[in-house]
Amino acid sequence: MKFTVNGKAVEVSATPDTPLLWVLRDHLDLTGTKFGCGLAQCGACTVHLDGRAIRSCVTPVVEVQGRTVRTIEGLAPEQGLHPVQTAWIEAGAPQCGYCQSGQIMSAVALLAAVPDPTDADIDAALSPNLCRCATYPRIRDAVHRAAARMRDAR
């Protein structure tokens, strides 16, 4: 199975039904993407497939053949951080941190589609992502901060 992850071409030998999540974690050693539920109920496994946020725990690897995947490890440029990551730090959003990769990937996808989101936009886009520490208010704040940063950078 061949596809692109974080700008690199990869080839893996996994059964076609293996969820992308486990190919990333166990075959490609990209452990920033997390397992939380296995049923697309928690969003911890969120990655981008051709730029759109998907739940990799229910996406068979066969479906990503020839396509482009981006994970949390592929977000930051060579030096420094992605503006969403910087905003997350400014907002002091993470607690246990386990869900945050998925939250950030959902936020990046949202901001690509809606550069200046309202609270309602954020709630709609990020409600698939559970946070048991309930850092939601700070995540909401972080998304607004990220939007401002990205606006300033344009």
């Binding site: 990209l30 452990t31 920033g32 993407t33 997390k34 397992f35 994970t71 949390i72 490890e73 977000l75 930051a76 951080l81 990551q85 997350w88 730090i89 002091g92 959003a93 993470p94 941190g97 386990y98 945050q100 990769s101 950030i104």
Partner: peptide
């Protein structure tokens, strides 16, 4: 914070 926003933080899993 940096480890937890970059996916670099190592959890048991």
């Amino acid at each position: 914070l940096v480890a937890k926003v970059t996916g670099a933080a190592t959890f048991g899993v």
